[in-house]
């Protein structure tokens, strides 16, 4: 016994060093680009090309933020992003919840329907976006808010449906049955009993839908141009730059990542379900 105990104690003492190193390295890896971006965003332009680089700006400035938001139309992008992401989120959570409930409680369409929805999640966007572009140009939805809202609703639906599907599956159904016997129609049992009980799941699904829309680039790049452009597409303006716009790009990035990170960290309890479409409980 003492031998075992000693061996165990030795293991306890030696292993954490490797772990701490690995974790420390990884933390630095994650934080370093974020720090450098922040650093760049508040650094005066004069500090850009110094050797050695300026690690801590001594004279922080907000000029880059101002330029990014106004000169590069970052603010318009921000507003468009808000309108489009919020609308698509509401629609996606709403329609996703409706469908998920039907699949979970009535087994609608058997396995086929649910897997058909799931398969939509894995379609490469490039396969969809070309014809959607052509169709949108034909019906006048190109470069409109509505057009992108619809596209985003559809593209977040599979995740909403599957997250809520898993949520409803995990919920006992006796309360809805009690409501049915108590005199409710199916709709009332759903709306007055199931939905209030599923509210945390719906909020989580909505948060992930919002983050997906907020960070989406590809659809926005192709389906919008000068009117309904979103925040991520504003970064096109900084491509291939030669020095002048580092600060603006960094500032816009900081503005854009704050809301989604805040929401994501708040909803991290549901993260595993969100990432695996409900296949794994967190």
């Amino acid at each position: 016994m003492p031998v075992v105990a000693r061996a165990r104690r030795r293991k306890r003492r030696s292993v954490p060093i490797g772990r701490i190193l690995l974790l420390g390295f990884f933390l630095v890896f994650v934080l370093w680009p974020l720090y450098w971006m922040f650093n760049t965003s508040i650094k005066p332009s004069d500090d850009y090309l110094t050797v050695p680089p300026v690690w801590f700006p001594t004279a922080p400035t907000l000029v880059h933020y101002k330029a990014a938001l106004f000169a590069y139309r970052g603010l318009d992008g921000l507003i468009n992003s808000l309108i489009i992401s919020l609308s698509a989120t509401v629609l996606s959570a709403l329609f996703g919840t409706l469908m998920a409930y039907s699949l979970a409680r009535y087994n609608t369409g058997g396995q086929h329907l649910s897997f058909w929805v799931l398969s939509q999640r894995f379609l490469p966007p490039i396969g969809i976006v070309l014809p959607v572009f052509l169709i949108y140009r034909g019906v006048g939805l190109y470069d409109t808010h509505i057009g992108l809202i619809i596209a985003y609703t559809v593209f977040t639906l599979p995740v909403s449906v599957w997250m809520m599907f898993a949520y409803f599956r995990g919920m006992p159904k006796s309360m809805e049955e009690a409501a049915l016997v108590d005199g409710c129609t199916r709709w009332e049992a759903f709306w007055r009993v199931a939905v209030p009980l599923a509210a945390p799941g719906i909020v989580a699904a909505a948060v992930f839908a919002f983050i997906a829309c907020w960070t989406e680039f590809f659809f926005a790049l192709i389906l919008t141009s000068r009117t309904a452009f979103t925040l991520p597409t504003v970064f096109r303006a900084f491509i291939g730059f030669q020095g002048a716009q580092y600060g603006e790009a960094a500032a816009l990035a900081i503005v854009s990542l704050v809301p989604s990170i805040a929401l994501g960290v708040l909803a991290q309890r549901h993260l595993v379900r969100g990432l695996t479409l409900g296949a794994v409980r967190g």
Binding site: P172, S174, M175, E177, A178, A179, V193, L197
Partner: peptide, 8 residues
């Protein structure tokens, strides 16, 4: 019901 199924 067995689990009472009260509306929480």
């Amino acid at each position: 019901f067995q689990d009472y199924a009260l509306y929480p």
